[in-house]
Amino acid sequence: MTGRILPFGPLMAARPDPAGAAFVLPFRAKRPATTDETPLDPGEAERFRRLILPHLDGTYSFARFLCRDASLAEDLVQDAFLKAYRGFRGFRGGEPRAWLFAIVRTSHLTSVRRRSEPSADPEVLETMASDADTPEAALLRQGEVDAVRGAIESLPEPFREALVLRELEELSYREIAEITSAPIGTVMSRLARARTMLLAALPLEETRP
């Protein structure tokens, strides 16, 4: 993990945040992995299995919350691990999940555009109502886990991805900013709004016996 305790003051006014914008992934997911297509040697392949494969569940979970569809999520994840395997020589260390999630997210945005859905521009999505369950409908689902999942899925995408990366994957603000290509100040405000929306959708009384 990179530094989890960040100086707070300067971050508060961040929009645009030059520090966040200048933060570059160790490996750019958008760059086609054309540099070196020769198969990984056994040592490299072993390292890939040790470092990258353990994040399959987390990557699938992130993909699933992102696209809200089980089979689309499988495709996204399989594609992401293939890309990661082919581009593994470009992986410069750091948090492997930040790398995998950025690949998943890029593929997701590309496939959303290809399906000619509404623009995936975060600025537009932020003001757009979600097409999934309303929070009220989500609450009608059975069980605590379903209710929580439904409430998360009802959040508009920029809030949903920030929340999942923080609360479920426990990534730092800086890592979330990297993955979502957003300034840290924006990550913070999205996270705060996501939680406010969830508190409204998931009253605490629901958990009490």
Binding site: L53, Y60, Q78, E170
Partner: peptide
């Protein structure tokens, strides 16, 4: 509640097999 076990999804077994086979080269 958000980080409770069960809220995050787990990769389906078939996907895991495909990805592990791919990583074997």
């Amino acid at each position: 509640r958000l980080s409770a076990p069960g809220v995050g999804y787990r990769a389906p077994a078939a996907l895991r097999q495909r990805v592990e086979a791919m990583a074997e080269g």
